[in-house]
């Protein structure tokens, strides 16, 4: 399955992936209309240390702890992609607790949201990958099992 991978050597720490992610999932056609003056709730986050930075989003694990731990059955696996059914989420944050990557975060209403590879939104392909200026984020098939 194609997944999102990050080459931290190439990451500039520009945070554009976060904005492209929030824009792609906003349903708006214009970035300024979607994001201007609003708090940002992206599904990908830049982790920054002293001399390193890289983007973190859902790994779409083959054996996902978040799905196992979800008490409401909101997190599901569809064709390898882990999705969240927001109508079922009760906001218990157990998935946040168990995810070893810190890839899940609630949206502005406290309902869980996560990277679903932009397959369902207007972008159609991962917006973080498409918008990464240094091509540090890639969407590709790799053999390693997560």
């Amino acid at each position: 399955m194609k997944r999102i991978y990050v080459n931290e050597d190439w990451c500039l720490g520009c945070h554009l992936c976060e904005y492209n992610c929030a824009f792609a999932n906003s349903g708006e056609a214009d970035m300024a209309a979607a994001l201007k003056g609003k708090p940002l709730f992206p599904r990908i986050h830049i982790e920054e240390g002293d001399k390193i930075c890289y983007a973190v989003s859902c790994r779409h694990c083959e054996d996902p702890l978040c799905v196992k731990s979800c008490i409401a059955g909101a997190l599901q696996v569809k064709d390898g992609v882990i999705t969240v059914d927001q109508s079922r989420c009760v906001g218990c944050l157990t998935c946040v607790l168990v995810c070893p990557y810190g890839a899940l975060a609630p949206n502005e209403n406290g309902v869980m949201q996560k990277c679903e590879l932009c397959l369902q939104n207007s972008c159609g392909e991962p917006a973080c990958v498409k918008g990464c200026p240094n091509r540090a984020i890639v969407f590709e098939e790799r053999s390693a099992v997560l």
Partner: peptide
């Protein structure tokens, strides 16, 4: 009107 204050200019 266009600036969304993403601060990419500042960071880069």
């Amino acid at each position: 009107n266009r600036c969304i204050a993403c601060r990419v200019c500042e960071r880069q």
